[in-house]
Each structure stands twice: as structure tokens, then as C-alpha cells.
Design a protein around this nucleic acid. Structure first.
Lengths: 343, 343
DNA sequence: CTGAAAGCGCTTACAG
DNA sequence: CTGAAAGCGCTTACAG
């Protein structure tokens, strides 16, 4: 265990140089109150600090200033791929802006109270709540966010003072339907992994985008060409039931799957039926998971635009510090159709 | 911004109850020094704390005690799937043991000094360094870990006082070869996404496991049946070159891919050649990424055993606090062959 | 069983 | 341009 010898403090440098602590602080950081120090002295102080191996104590600073440069992030088990990719991008953008992320993985909504209490205790400057509750699950209670001045949600505002960033699921599906229509498809079916539990549920947004596009294009279908599943899990039996409905009964020539995982299982099921993609049936996914481009055929899907999401998220986060009312702003991230081989 | 009214401190409760701070601390936590307090008073204090909405200030506590219950985690871009899954599991296990994770995504090795300095400044109790450097990349310098008393690495000990946890890549490949041999394969090829840059590089371990198994089984091949790539990216051209070598020249009937991403691209390439999996060519991946079971055919692959990894990692982490010499222990996590349809 | 005091390492007004 | 002092909210030895 090296260098455990003695932690170097600001005062140690001050003593060594025969100056006061504020002088050292002014030389090393922007702090030091009104204290100003000559460039020459500042340079000497920095040299000494480097020689002694001085490391500022962020904890002491935080205690004094109340600023932690720490953001709590709650991620869920709801869509591992999407959340994990987004988390890493979020970290990159947060780091660029001088923040660090404290992560909490929400396994069970009952843990949420303790998680938020811990975030408060650690003085996070705000929380990104990226977990989407399933329809089976209780949404988070607004009370748990009370002591967190800045909270940003994904899709749904779970407490009155929180901001929300939404992905344009409806727009993504809308693009997909138009794309399929342009490829000549007139009977377009959709499979959804659930029925939608709360107002902002992406399941409902997908349905909206689908129906709007069909109407615009004058295509048949609507709810009748949508298969609703009961579980988020793309079990083979569920896929087979969906295809029996959509292909056999409704004679669709294109299927929009609930997400890329469902699409991957649909590829298997279509191959079991001896159908070619996209010649016999076109297929669209959602999420643009890493797997989408690894599938055979490579999957046409809708991308979440994580880049823009994390940028807007951090912009909003910084704006909330100045203007809490900015939480009411509507932020919608456009989704992007990524065309590959499956359509 | 609710409840920003006034933060409740220990001293506020003490005043309200007409007792001293240590008494309150003793009632609410295990702390309070020698102070003991009667159960009846403790109950009243807890009730008051709850009524006032008291939240302990972890930062003040950390400044005084030096304990942060915080672990820094460095994850890299080297294998997103593996690292992301592992990160989430690590978080779960850490939380169970009362720790929280501070994450840092390493985009560029030049950032590593600043990252470690920030971890030191924030008083993390240790670091899990999960990033594996590519052969093209500088390994981390030992000096950057100097002020971190507890460091745990994956695969390779990058500073003398750090502990290491290794995945048994060699054992995983060894299982794969034996499995293929049991299926009747005698010419087994391997494709590796690189040549291995540093002693603990998993590429070299895979090669070792492969050669040992071939020798045990008296099978032909060895290095001659291994194709070495130049890039971690499974480009179609690389896959085609590998198959030209392994299938056309060496006439192998089974291929062990560098990882699941390479395996996914190999599935496409084999289908382009009109070959069936596993009838014409058997295929094994590595990592057991989420995509492995979504591919068609579902992929036989080697699982990292993340459960055990994170458990052993946290055990070692806690042991290092008491016995720094435990860092020298060899910890090897057995990998598990997961047999699916591709073999 | 209880309280007053010191101190963790910073920052920040304030006085010189 | 510089220094002495107070204080962020806790914990902990020590004295009563």
C-alpha cells in the first residue's frame, strides 16, 4: 500500500511555502475567496503541490460548498441493451462537463426509497431516472424525489418538479411504416410486447405512430393488424402466436416487431416457416441494439439517438440549476429509422 | 424545488429533544463514540428524526471517518457487451454489501491519470479496473494507482499492490474443443481477433486452451489451424479471409470464433457459402453475449460466469482492507461452455 | 449515562 | 496583495 505515508493537505503546502491556505487555494484552483496571487508565486506553489503529490479533497470541498459534481443515475432491468448503451454515453457526456456518475441499478421498485435517500445523503446534484416501469410494476412514488432538487426522467414525469426527455417512439414507427409503404407493402402488421401500462408508455406511442401513418397512407389495418403480447419476453410460442395472427389471418407482408429482441426471434420463426426476409416478409425492429447489425439478415430498425438524448439530458440538467421552471419544457428526441437488409 | 426549506442536521434533532449530538448519533446509527442511550430515548429520537425528515450527510461523515462506501469502476470500450453486463452485476453485488459505484468509462488511456486522481479526490475505497487494453494501446502506468490502496484488475496486474481476477479463457476453449471432439470433429479451427499484446491477454489464453486440448485428444492442427486477425472488428472481409484459410485450405469442420460478435458474422458468411450450421460446419463463440441466444442457429458459446466474478471481486475487495497481501492470491473464474444449436 | 470540545480539509467573507 | 477565523455536518475521545 504505497503513499499511504501522509495525505498532503492545502495547509501543508502553505506551511512549506510560508503563505496562507487561501493563497495556495487561489494558486491551485479558482477558489480562495477574494484572494489573488501573483503569477510567479502561483507557479511556485503549483510546483510545490506537484512535488508533494497534493490531491485536493473533493469531499471536504463538497461539505463546504455543497457542490458534488455528482449525478445519480437509476437504470433498470427493463431494457438492458438500451439502458446500458445510454448509460455509457451519458457517462461520457457527463464527464466532458465535469460530472461523475453514481449508478444505481433498480432491481425492485421497493428499493427506490432507499436508493434516493442514499443519493440525497451523498449530495448528488441531481438524478437521471432512466428506468421505465413495466405495466406489472408500481411506478415510483413522487415523494421519494422530494429532497432531490433536479430530477430528469425518461418518458414520464414521475414527480411534479422533474423534467422529462422523451424518445419519439411514435415518429420512429411512423417512419418505419412509410418506409415499408414505399417498398410496396400495403398490409403491415405490428407485434407489441404488452398493452401499455401508463400514459407515456412507449408501447402506446408505437401504436399511435403506426395508426397515424396507416391513416395518412390510406392503408388497411390499424388495431386489427396489431398483435398484443402479455410478456416482455419474446418466447417462441408468443412469436408463433403473433405470426399466426398477422401472417395467416391478416396476410400481412411486413411486420414491425416490438423491439430488436422480438425481431431476432421473429427471424428464427420466419425461417422455420420457410419464409425469406425481406422477399416474403419484411421485418423492422426497434432500439438498434448492438445485435441488429449482427443478425442475418441485418435488421432494419429504429435508433434511439442516444447521442442527442444524453446531450439534451445534460443541457436540461444544467439549465435546471438556474431555471427550475425549465423542467416543464417538452423535450422530444427524434428517433431514426436505420435501413438494413430486412426490408 | 420542494423541501429546499432547510436541511435537518443531527444538531437540530438534538436541540429539539434537549439532548446532545452524540446521543442522537448513538440512537440513529452505531456511531456516537462511547455514548450509549436507553432504548426508550432512542425510540423517541428516531421518531423525531423521521418526523423532521432527517437525512444523514454522508459527505460530512466521510470527511470525518475517511470511509466513503464508494468504489470506483473503470470500464472500457474494449468489449462493450461483456463489460456492461458485468458492470450491472457488480453494482448489484456491491449494493448488497453497502457500496455504491462511481463509474468511469475509459475512452482513451491518456484520460486514466485524471480519472484516478478524481477517484482519489472523492475518497473511493478502491477501484475495479475492468478495462482490457488492446494490443495497439498503452497499458496503464502503475504510478496512477499509487494513492489507491485497493485496486482490483481484470486479467492483468497493472500495479504491484493490485489484485487480479482472471477468467479462465483457456479452460473455456478447452471445454469447447472437447465438446466438438465428442461431436465427432477432428479438424477444429480457431479464429482470433488479434495476436495478443501482453502476457495476460485473453487471446493468448484461448490459444493455450486450444493447443492443450488438441494435444490431449491427439487431434491435428495447433497453430496451423488458427487464423489471426489484425483488428477487433469482425469485418466481412476478415471473416471471409479466415474461412478461406480454415475451410478451404485446412478443411476444418468446426470453427471456434474469437467471440460472439465474430461468430455472428461467421454465421452470415457460412450462409453466403450455402453451408449449414452445424451440419456442414459447427461454430462456437465466446462471451455468451445477449445476442448468442438470439442468433439463428442459437450459438454455442463460453460464458464468463459474471455471477461468480462479481462475488469473488467483492470478497477480495473486502479482504484487501484487512490483508493487503491477499492481492497476491490467484483468483481464476471458471468459464462455462453453454451448448446451443450451432454445434 | 451524558455533554463540551476538537477536528476531518476545505472555502469564504472579513479585516489588515 | 495577504492572513486569521469561522464554519460545512459529522464523529470521537475525553471529562463529568
Amino acid at each position: 500500500m504505497p503513499a499511504a505515508s501522509r495525505t498532503i493537505r492545502l495547509v501543508d503546502i502553505a506551511r512549506e511555502m510560508g503563505v496562507s491556505r487561501p493563497v495556495v487555494a487561489a494558486a491551485l484552483f479558482d477558489s480562495g475567496g477574494n484572494t489573488r496571487v501573483s503569477p510567479a508565486l502561483a507557479a511556485r506553489i503549483r510546483a510545490t503541490a506537484a512535488r508533494l503529490g497534493y490531491r485536493p479533497n473533493a469531499v471536504a470541498r463538497q461539505l463546504k460548498t455543497g457542490r458534488s459534481r455528482l449525478i445519480g443515475v437509476v437504470i433498470g432491468a427493463d431494457n438492458p441493451q438500451v439502458n446500458q448503451t445510454r448509460l455509457l454515453q451519458l457517462e461520457a457526456e457527463a464527464f466532458r462537463r465535469g460530472y461523475r456518475l453514481l449508478i444505481a441499478y433498480l432491481h425492485d421498485m421497493r428499493e427506490s426509497t432507499a436508493l434516493m435517500a442514499d443519493f440525497v445523503a451523498r449530495g448528488v446534484e441531481g438524478v437521471f431516472w432512466l428506468h421505465l416501469p413495466f405495466c406489472l410494476e408500481q411506478p415510483p412514488k413522487a415523494a421519494i424525489f422530494k429532497q432531490l432538487p433536479r430530477v430528469i426522467f425518461n418518458e414520464e414525469r414521475w414527480c411534479p418538479h422533474g423534467g422529462v426527455i422523451r424518445i419519439d417512439y411514435a415518429g420512429g414507427i411512423h417512419q418505419a411504416v412509410h418506409h415499408l409503404a414505399a417498398r410496396g407493402h400495403r398490409r403491415i402488421g405490428m407485434m407489441l410486447a404488452g398493452r401499455g401500462g401508463w400514459p407515456g408508455d412507449p408501447i402506446l406511442a408505437r401504436l399511435r405512430g403506426y395508426q397515424t401513418a396507416l391513416r395518412e397512407l390510406g392503408l388497411p389495418g390499424g388495431r386489427s393488424h396489431v398483435w398484443f403480447g402479455d410478456s416482455p419476453d419474446p418466447a417462441a410460442s408468443a412469436i408463433d402466436a403473433a405470426l399466426a395472427e398477422l401472417l395467416d389471418r391478416r396476410r400481412v407482408t411486413a411486420v414491425i416487431a416490438s423491439n430488436d429482441q422480438w425481431a431476432a426471434e421473429t427471424i428464427k420463426a420466419l425461417r422455420r416457416r420457410g419464409l425469406r426476409i425481406p422477399e416474403d416478409v419484411a421485418l423492422v425492429g426497434f432500439d438498434n441494439d448492438d445485435l441488429a447489425r449482427r443478425l442475418d439478415p441485418e435488421l432494419t430498425t429504429v435508433d434511439h439517438n442516444h447521442d442527442l438524448f444524453v446531450q439534451r439530458a445534460l443541457e436540461l440538467f444544467e439549465r435546471l440549476a438556474v431555471t427550475p421552471a425549465a423542467a416543464a419544457d417538452e423535450i422530444l428526441i427524434p428517433a431514426r429509422l436505420v435501413v438494413r437488409q430486412s426490408t
